[in-house]
Design a protein around this nucleic acid. Sequence first.
DNA 1: CGGCCATTTGAACGCGCTCAAGCGCGGTGG
DNA 2: CCACCGCGCTTGAGCGCGTTCAAATGGCCG
Lengths: 254, 254
Amino acid sequence: MSQAPVTERASAQFADPFAVLTADMAPATASRFSALLARNLRRFPAGTGIVAEGEQAPQIMFALEGWIALNKSLEDGNVQMIDLILSPDIIEPTSADGQISAYDLHALTDVAISTVQRRDLDGLEISDPPQMWSIVRTRAAIARARVAEHTLRLGQGSAQTRLAYVLLELCLRLGGAQDARTRAFDLPLTQQRIGELAGLSSVHVSRTLRRLSRQGLIDASESRRIAINDIQGLARIAKVELDVLRNELFATDV
Amino acid sequence: MSQAPVTERASAQFADPFAVLTADMAPATASRFSALLARNLRRFPAGTGIVAEGEQAPQIMFALEGWIALNKSLEDGNVQMIDLILSPDIIEPTSADGQISAYDLHALTDVAISTVQRRDLDGLEISDPPQMWSIVRTRAAIARARVAEHTLRLGQGSAQTRLAYVLLELCLRLGGAQDARTRAFDLPLTQQRIGELAGLSSVHVSRTLRRLSRQGLIDASESRRIAINDIQGLARIAKVELDVLRNELFATDV
DNA sequence: CGGCCATTTGAACGCGCTCAAGCGCGGTGG
DNA sequence: CCACCGCGCTTGAGCGCGTTCAAATGGCCG
């Protein structure tokens, strides 16, 4: 941890994120799990580092609230956002040794997470079959698929394709958009950060967003907010099949 | 499965790959695991498809022998190799639903794999703590770190950086090179395939390989074979810290 | 030998980059 | 209150990297 986190007791406003993860659990396991999360709750204000690349890190982090960037950077300072973490995602930042983080985790907004070690989850496993690890596995599979779609477009897509894909993925992950009729959603990222995600310079993010606007596909006039006007057209440019993407991004079983 | 695989009984030549995975297991678990792998052995000749994107797939695949491309492709036909799978890697091709493959798996050489379902592993779990899933988790963490390094360079690296990284990663994964003094190794990929991995056109792979040769960093004169003459220099161009990469790519515990 | 595929090399294009200037907006302090 | 500053966004100009298209070379196998 590169910043001193704030620890606090379980509070009512986390009923929601807890519920997403405990929905299909046996009640006894669920309550023990909720208690574990509450015990290990950490908060980070927007703009702070959560975990630094190459430093000691918790093995498992439950994203409860806020937007987290999972970054890696080249020696020359160029940053690539590998993935964007939103509740109820689970982050496993350590590599083979289970100790050192392979990634840089950065709070894009105010963030609440719960950090645990693997043995904590083993300690919870009383039901049969073990459900805790099953949940972790499912979230890992979703993250893998998400990163692969992203990587595909970084390697093969044009700027329009990359950006359209990023917007579409976020639209779907935010629940088909907070405002369902207009498919508009808050995007608490500067164009610089969007560029780190899409592998583009901030200048070219600006140009490409305006191009998509001029084509009538999106409305990006409001700052830190995106409205998708033509989701089919955007999917065509992103070179994505919406149904396929939905199946990849959302759990359909435990 | 898009090709009819060949099933066969356990044979002596797989003692090695089995051993890598069973090294730290309790003997009883290890033998049951080896039997499971042997029971579900499949072979694919070079150039054949193993699993197609969007089709039914096994949940867990143990790579025993050969080179496997983990690909994704855009609607327009452009292919990106997300990762390259070598024994003792474990592939989990399905996404959230545990049924449909999110990736296209392709045999680059003759390949031997063993395919199982999650419940098969649950059935093996008799020791405490469960070691099977721990192995799967560790291999998954390694693959995540590998894909992230790759994605970073697809998003932020030049052609030289991407290619140098690909060669370095393979050099390390192949055991610091089969021939330790010259750090030379067989690379059973056409430049077209290397391009799919590095996110470059095959033409530019050719130019960039020659450029690295002219700089004295590698020797690519022999077809399907690479010799690394100056690993430090190559690491500089790949913008990679060799020790860090080694820690990410290799398991240091179970 | 002929045919096929992989590789090499040249030529030219264009996408996305950097550099640079200007604008808009919110926050701060005189 | 307005002046100022800083930051993010926009837009223009020009460049260079990696692309595509095309042709030639080399290697392997029938």
